[in-house]
């Protein structure tokens, strides 16, 4: 279980998170929605320990990672897989080395045949068989994203964080990514935290949806509750209308 309590985070003078509280239960898929710049990716980076809060606690399996020394934090970070917004593939390595990187550094597999088999399996799951020796610079944006996804799931982590998994991916592949997120949960019991603007994807994969606004959770509920919300802010966001309490200048 992941529990964020009273998280505050400032960058220079800009307050991004203002007392964020969020609990993510084991085995569930939670989707975080909100306007660009409202702090969704910052929240993900707090969960995985890439950022430390100015105030508040981030508990992963009852351990507050906000105060952990680097070495202990590193062992907690091994529980996570992270799909970055821009995929964050290592430019100097080919696709195979990118996907197997976590397997090697965490010493999860030592046999090269086993590693290559796992790489091929992950690539098959994201629909990219046979590109093991391709360099990231030769891939399109959508393909990079899918390789990033393959890398995130390769080590079979307990928690997977997806930062806009369907952005830049065609609609058919987008649906396949949604199926993959659901399968990860159903077959392996993975806890998933998905940040997205894609409401179709959100309704498809989510057990619960949390809407972030002004550095806090505006509303959290099941997809049905969010669809039928009476909150004007959430309603405006999910229906995607320009007129409403959220103005264009308001970054949320």
């Amino acid at each position: 279980m992941i529990k964020l309590t009273g998280i505050y985070k400032k960058f220079n003078q800009q307050e991004v998170l203002r007392g964020l509280d969020l609990t993510i239960n084991a085995g569930e898929t939670i989707v975080i929605i909100g306007r660009s710049g409202c702090g969704k990716s910052v929240t993900l980076k707090h969960i995985v320990g890439l950022l430390k809060p100015d105030q508040g606690a981030v508990e992963v399996d009852d351990v507050n990672i906000a105060t952990l020394p680097p070495l202990e934090l590193q062992s907690i970070q091994k529980k996570f897989g992270f799909l970055f917004q821009g995929a964050a593939l290592f430019d100097s390595m080919n696709v195979s080395d990118n996907i197997s990187f976590g397997l090697r550094t965490q010493h999860l597999m030592s046999d090269e045949k086993q590693i290559q088999a796992r790489v091929a399996e992950c690539l098959r799951l994201v629909g990219l068989e046979g590109i093991e020796h391709t360099m990231p610079s030769e891939l399109s944006g959508g393909m990079r994203k899918r390789v990033g996804l393959a890398r995130a799931i390769a080590a079979q982590p307990q928690y997977i964080l997806y930062d806009e998994p369907t952005t830049g991916v065609d609609p058919i592949m987008s649906d396949a990514v949604n199926d993959l997120i659901i399968n990860m949960k159903e077959k392996l019991g993975v806890t998933s935290i998905v940040v997205t603007h894609d409401m179709v994807s959100a309704y498809t994969v989510a057990d619960r949806i949390a809407m972030m606004y002004h550095g806090m959770i505006q509303q959290i509920g099941t997809p049905r509750e969010i669809k039928n919300t009476l909150d004007p802010i959430v309603k405006q966001f999910i229906t995607g209308t320009a007129k409403g309490p959220i103005t264009l200048e308001d970054r949320g």
Binding site: K45, V48, G49, L50, P70, Q74, Q77, K78, F80, G81, F82, F84, Q85, G86, A88, L89, F90, D91, F101, G102, T105, Q106, R151, A155
Partner: peptide, 22 residues
């Protein structure tokens, strides 16, 4: 610097590698 701005250094942390060591 390019690795930093394209989040590759963050990716190292999440894959169990320490960027200072690596």
């Amino acid at each position: 610097g390019t690795m930093r701005v394209t989040e590759q250094i963050d990716a190292l942390y999440t894959l169990g590698a320490n960027p200072v060591k690596y």
